[in-house]
Computed example of a mutant assay.
Amino acid sequence: MSIEVFAPASIGNFSVGYDLLGAAISPIDGSLLGDVVRVDSASDYQLITEGNFAQQLPANASDNIVHQCYELFHQKLERKGVEQDALLVTLEKNLPVGSGLGSSSSSIVAAFAAFNQWYQEPFSSRELLLMMGNMEAQISGSLHYDNIAPCYLGGLQLMSADESISNALPWFDDWYIVVANPGTNILTKAAREAIPSSIDLTQATAYAQNLANFISSLYRQDKRGALYHLKDVIAEPYRYELLPNFQKHKAELLGHGASAMGISGSGPTIFAVCENLEAAHGVHDYLAHYYNENDRAFSHICQLNQQGAQQLSKFGEDEACRSSI
C-alpha cells in the first residue's frame, strides 16, 4: 500500500494577527504549492528527499524534520499499543526553506497526516495538531500554530488559547491573494529576533483594535472595514528592512491594484490582497518583474485553500483517489 498527502503553503500572521492568524493558499492555476509526503511499505525504515528544494534540507536524514515527525508519531503510537510498520517515507520538498510560506509546517503537516492515514487514523485532529505544534516549535524556537493550523485545516484560522487550538474565520470568496518570493530566504528565528521583546501600550492598543475590527468586519462581510484594518503594527515596522525594497513596492502596488499588502510570515515572501482578478493579474505582473533577486524567484495568484491537507492518492486498493483528510 502507498499513501500520498499534500499540505499547502500558508501565510502566517496575515499582517493584522501576529502569531494569531494564518491562511492556507492555493494558486488559481491548479498547481500544488506545498510539500508532499509519500508513505510506502518497506522492509526497513528509510527517508528519501526529492523535489525542487531538497538540496536545502539537512544532509543527514536524522536532522530532517520529517524524520523527527516519524519518531514522535511512532512514540505516541507505541503508547496506544498499535503495532508499528517499517516505512519508506519520501518527502517531496516543493517550498523553499525560510520562504515565509510555512515551509516547515507544510512538511510537518504532510508527514503527520500521511502517517495517521497509514495507520487508519489512530489520532484525532487535535492530537495531531499538538504533535505538529511540538515539531514546529523545535524549528522556530517558540510554539505557535498560525502556519500549522491553516495548513492542516484550511481556510483563514484564528488561534485560540483553549482546547480548540484554532477556529476558522469567514472570508470573501471573490478576493485574490498574490504571493511573491524574491528567491532569497529568511530564517524564522532571525526574523523573530528583529522584533522587540516588548511593545508600548499605544502600539498594543492599535494591534488589538485592528485585529478585533478586522475579524468583526469579516463576520459582517464588510470589505472596506476589513481592508482598512488589515495592518501590521507589530512585525512589519521592524522586519521590512530584511526584504528587498519592500516599502517601495508596497507604495507602488497600493496605488495600482492591491487593496492591502503585507509580509507573509517572517518573509521574504510578500502578499497582496486584491478585490478582483484583473487587479490580481496586474499586481502579479509587477511583482514577477520587480520583486525578484535571482532565477529562484516565483509568484502566484492564489485564493484561500479551504481544504487544507489532502490525501492525493492511496494505492494498493481498487483505485487511486484525492480526498480531504
Rank of each mutant, 00 (worst) to 15 (best):
E163K: 08
L156F: 11
G133V: 07
A113G: 00
C151T: 14
L128M: 14
G81V: 01
F112A: 00
S105M: 05
S104P: 04
L129T: 05
N60G: 05
G102W: 11
A86L: 01
L130R: 11
S160V: 03
I148P: 08
N64S: 08
D162N: 15
A161I: 12
G98Q: 07
L153P: 01
S62V: 09
W118L: 06
R79L: 15
L130D: 11
R79C: 06
F73A: 02
A111W: 04
P58G: 12
G133K: 12
K93I: 11
V82W: 00
A61P: 12
N147L: 13
N64A: 05
L156N: 02
E127T: 06
R79Y: 09
G154R: 06
E78G: 12
I148E: 09
N60D: 15
L57R: 01
N64P: 06
L95Y: 10
Q120G: 00
K80G: 15
M159Q: 13
M131K: 03
Y119L: 02
L77C: 06
G141V: 10
D85H: 14
E127P: 04
S107H: 04
G102H: 11
D162Q: 11
M135N: 03
S106D: 06
L88C: 13
F112T: 06
D63I: 01
V82E: 05
S164G: 05
A114R: 02
L77A: 08
P58N: 10
A61D: 14
S124D: 14
G102L: 12
S164N: 13
R126P: 00
C151P: 02
I148H: 12
V109A: 02
L77Y: 02
T90M: 04
V82L: 05
S160N: 12
P150R: 12
